[in-house]
C-alpha cells in the first residue's frame, strides 16, 4: 500500500494526542492553570493536527462533514464521531482544569474511554480490510493502542508506566510483523484464485492491461522500498521502543530525558507506520502479477 505522508502523520500524531488525553482524563497527572493549558494544548495540537492532516488525502475535503452519517457500518464514520465526542468532552474537562483548578473525574474518565475508542476505531479502518491481509489481523488494533498509550505515557511524564508500555509495544510490534509476514499466504489468495483459472494450470501475467501506471498500481501495488524493510524494522524497534525505554529508565526524573525519549519514539513510530503501509500487500496486486 502507498505510504501516503498525510495518513502516516495522521495516525501517528492523533494516536499520540489521544494517548496523552487518556492519561489526562484518567488523572495520571492533574495539572491546573498554566501547566494544564500546556498539556492540553499539546494533546489537542497533536490530535487535531493529525485529524486535519488526514483530510489532506481526501479528493473532496469540502464534503467531509458527510463522513458523520454512516456510523452504522463504517469505521471511518465511527472514528469521526468518537474523535469529536472525545475532543468535546475533554475540552470541558480541560476548561475545568485550566480555569477552575478542578478535575471532573467522571467526565475525564469518559473522555479517556472515548480517546481509547477513537484510537481503536482508527485501527479498525485498516484491520477490517480483508483485501490487505497484513492489516487484517487482531494485533493491528492492539498495535495502534499500545503506540498511543506508550507515547502518551512519555508525554504525560510517567517514566515507569511508559517503560513497561514501551516493552509491550515492542512485543506487539514484533508480533504484528512476524504474524503479518504469513498473513497473505494464509488467506489463500493467489493468481489462480484471482483469475479462477487454477484448474488449468499455473497462471502468470502475459500482458498487463495498460502500458503505463494507474491509480490502482500507485495506491495499492506499492512495491518500492520493501527491500529496506528489515533495516527499517530494526530502526523502528530501536528508536520507538528500546532507546526511549532505556532513557526513561536511566533518567526517570529528567525533563530533558523525556524530550529526547519522545523525539526518538516519534521517529521510530513514523518508521514503523511507514512500514505498516509499505509492507502491506493488497490482493489486487495479484491481477498485475505483483504483490
Amino acid at each position: 500500500m502507498h505510504p501516503a505522508p498525510s495518513v502516516i502523520i495522521f495516525t501517528v500524531l492523533s494516536g499520540l494526542g489521544f494517548g496523552l488525553l487518556t492519561y489526562l482524563g484518567l488523572g495520571a497527572i492533574n495539572p491546573t492553570g498554566l501547566a494544564a493549558f500546556g498539556f492540553f494544548t499539546l494533546a489537542y495540537g497533536l490530535a487535531v493536527g493529525g485529524l486535519l492532516a488526514s483530510t489532506l488525502h481526501l479528493g473532496n475535503p469540502k464534503k467531509a462533514l458527510l463522513a458523520f452519517t454512516q456510523w452504522r457500518t463504517s469505521w471511518l464514520s465511527r472514528e469521526a464521531w468518537l474523535s469529536v465526542l472525545a475532543l468535546v468532552l475533554m475540552g470541558f474537562y480541560a476548561l475545568g482544569a485550566i480555569f477552575f483548578g478542578t478535575h471532573m473525574r467522571l467526565l475525564g474518565a469518559l473522555g479517556a474511554a472515548l480517546s481509547i475508542a477513537t484510537v481503536l476505531s482508527t485501527s479498525m479502518i485498516y484491520a477490517q480490510l480483508k483485501t490487505v491481509p497484513r492489516w487484517n489481523q487482531w494485533p493491528t488494533p492492539l498495535l495502534f493502542l499500545v503506540f498511543a498509550l506508550s507515547g502518551g505515557a512519555i508525554l504525560a511524564a510517567q517514566p515507569y508506566i511508559a517503560f513497561i508500555l514501551l516493552l509491550i509495544t515492542g512485543i506487539v510490534l514484533l508480533l504484528h510483523w512476524l504474524n503479518g509476514d504469513g498473513r497473505f499466504a494464509a488467506t489463500g489468495s493467489t493468481m489462480e484464485t484471482a483469475t479462477g483459472l487454477g484448474h488449468i494450470g499455473k497462471v502468470r501475467l502475459l500482458e498487463p492491461p495498460h502500458t503505463g501506471t494507474n491509480y490502482l498500481m500507485k495506491e495499492m501495488v506499492y512495491v518500492v522500498g520493501r527491500k529496506h524493510a528489515l533495516r527499517l524494522r530494526l530502526i523502528a524497534l530501536s528508536l520507538a521502543v528500546v532507546l526511549p525505554a532505556l532513557i526513561l529508565l536511566a533518567f526517570p526524573s529528567s525533563h530533558f530525558a523525556i524530550v529526547v525519549a519522545i523525539l526518538s519514539h516519534l521517529v521510530g513510530a513514523f518508521a514503523a507506520r511507514w512500514l505498516f503501509f509499505a509492507e502491506a500487500e493488497h490482493v489486487v496486486g495479484l491481477y498485475y502479477g505483483k504483490r
Binding site: 500500500m1 473532496n60 475535503p61 464534503k63 489468495s189 491509480y215 490502482l216 490482493v283 489486487v284 491481477y287
Partner: peptide, 21 residues
Amino acid sequence: DACIGCGLCAWACPYGAREMD
C-alpha cells in the same frame, strides 16, 4: 455528490474495480 474521495472503498475492493479520478 456525496463522495469525499477518501479512497477507502477502493482499498476494500479485491478486484481493483474502483479508480479515483
